[in-house]
Design a protein around this nucleic acid. Structure first.
Length: 495
RNA sequence: GGGCCGUUAGCUCAGUCGGUAGAGCAGUUCGCUUUUAACGAAUUGGUCCUGCGUUCGAGUCGCAGACGGCCCA
């Protein structure tokens, strides 16, 4: 790795320049203070004429990375990029102390510099800082990607995200939006009197979702632990504890393959409210999405893959059976017939159909036939009990649970249900999970006796929801891959 | 796990039929005091992803592998 540094001529040239800077004094000073940011100045000076601006005689200090240079004999322009955008600086030999213009001419694209000077408008009306003092703050030793095209190579964009962020404004914009989305979500929940909490990332019992875990080991306790696949069972313990409305935005870890929709660590929003059921939560999600889009995008209408999604309207609500039967053009009652389910599943080449329960078969058919076509926001309800081990049984149908999933743009965005707060029912469901695990289902949950004990103290009637934050950000920013909304997506190590 | 595509200068990309490896940007040198993809002139820079093979000769053809992308499971 280090030998490559000396090989490259461009880096060598920059190192020589750094040596010269070191000889003259402090090479990496931290005494320059800026007082202005590019976009703020442009905002403040908007509409001012050349003369008005001159009269105001505004002296500013700006700092940032040199992105473009236009060097002439005794005067030059350069474009400086800071956290809010770019601004032009005008450097004139006459206005600087002896020798400084010559130093300036050795500066490279990518160097980080500080400029003090008066604002003015150029002939073409561009707001520019007329430098009366310039300073090298951080010499950059490596050349930036191509100045107009930016970093294009996908692999490098993910592995060296900093270069992507420096050179691709649209990439930076996605991560700014991600931050605003999460911040807006926090505000929403705080406003509705939810308490933000952090629950363990390392679990000794696997539960809360159907997924394969990462395992690790605590040396001092000599104890194997799982990285959590979901925070659910801890959040519900908190509801037992009287935190009647809680939410957590944090990472989950699932030991599965990578795709445009999957990263082994991903961000999940989970929240629980006592004295609410799954219907209340569907209404609450509609409000969340409407508020979120309006706050972050200043409109409730989001363009997604050429289609307009309006989050101010109530979302469609259909049952799983309705959705599947419509797709198959059959009567919903035929989905209660196991032989029909089996036959249909086999036609779709679903694996191991004979070992699946009726509920799982129906669920598989839904995933295969319907899920990808749910573009408009749609709540699916009527989930089979055996794919929902933590959900409250439906009062009307003992085979179903009070659960919904929200699909938008063909992707699962949220999953919520009335919580199962009957400790005896929950214990039975755990037993079923354990049986499935011994039958070879690697994604089944373990029996969580401590959680059952908590339920025995009394979990108030409540309902909770999980929302995949990365997929939500994808949806709202139009990103086609989860890697485009994760700053550092998981990559194979190289070399 | 399977299929398809990609990997060439720091970056973005060409590279014909297998015959001395190219451009633009960046860099270097010179000129230029309101430029803005600044401009004009000259110029440096290569593990053609890796290995093996075919061949008089491989960036190019074959095989194996690495990494990445997309699709499928």
């Amino acid at each position: 790795m280090t030998e490559k540094l000396s090989e490259n001529e461009l880096i060598q040239q920059r190192r020589l320049k750094l040596e010269e800077i070191r000889k003259k004094g402090i090479a990496y000073p931290n005494s320059f203070r800026r007082d202005s940011l590019s976009a703020d100045l442009q905002q403040e000076c908007k509409g001012l004429s050349k003369e008005e601006l001159e009269e105001k005689s505004i002296e500013v200090s700006i700092a940032g990375r040199i992105m473009l240079q236009r060097i002439m004999g005794k005067a030059s322009f350069m474009t400086i990029q800071d956290m809010k955008g770019q601004i032009q600086a005008y450097i004139r030999s006459n206005d600087l102390p002896e020798g400084q213009y010559a130093d300036f001419k050795t500066w490279d694209l990518g160097d980080i510099v500080g400029i003090r000077g008066k604002l003015f408008l150029t002939k073409t009306g561009e707001l520019t800082v007329h430098a009366d003092s310039i300073e090298m703050l951080t010499k950059s030793l490596r050349p930036l990607p191509e100045k107009h095209l930016g970093l294009v190579d996908t692999e490098q964009r993910y592995r060296k995200r900093y270069l992507d962020l420096i050179t691709n404004p649209e990439s930076l914009e996605v991560f700014k939006k991600r931050s605003q989305i999460i911040s807006s979500i926090r505000d929403f929940f705080t406003k509705h009197e939810y308490l933000e909490v952090e629950t363990p990332m390392m679990h000794s019992v696997l539960g809360g979702a159907a997924a394969k875990p990462f395992t690790t080991h605590h040396n001092a306790l000599d104890m194997d632990l799982y990285l959590r696949i979901a925070p659910e069972l801890y959040l519900k313990r908190l509801v037992v504890g009287g935190l009647e409305r809680v939410f957590e935005i944090n990472r989950n870890f699932r030991n599965e393959g990578l795709s445009t929709k999957h990263n082994p660590e991903f961000t999940m929003l989970e929240y629980y409210s006592a004295y609410a059921d799954f219907n209340d939560q569907m209404n609450f999600i509609e409000k969340l999405f409407n508020d979120l889009t309006t706050e972050v995008f200043e409109t409730s209408v989001i363009e997604h893959n050429g289609q307009s999604l309006d989050f101010s309207k109530p979302f469609t609500r259909v049952t799983l059976k309705e959705a599947v039967s419509q797709k198959l053009s059959v009567d919903p009652s035929s989905l209660e017939d196991r032989s029909f389910l089996l036959e249909t599943a086999k036609k779709l080449n679903i694996d191991n159909v004979d070992n699946l329960s009726d509920g799982k078969l129906l669920f598989e058919l839904f995933e295969e036939l319907v899920e990808g076509n749910l573009i408009e926001p749609t709540f699916i309800t009527g989930y089979p009990k055996d794919v929902s081990p933590l959900s409250r049984s439906s009062d009307n149908n003992p085979l179903e649970v009070d659960r919904f999933e929200l699909f938008i743009g063909g992707k699962e965005i949220a999953n919520g249900f009335s919580e199962l707060n009957d400790p005896e029912d929950q214990a039975e469901r755990f037993h079923e999970q354990v049986n499935q695990k011994s039958a070879g289902d690697e994604e089944a949950m373990e029996f969580d006796a401590d959680y059952i004990e908590a339920l025995e103290y009394g979990l108030p009637p409540c309902a909770g929801v999980g929302i995949g934050v990365d997929r939500l950000v994808m949806l709202l920013t139009g990103a086609q891959s989860i890697r485009d909304v994760l700053l550092f997506p998981q990559m194979k190590s190289k070399g």
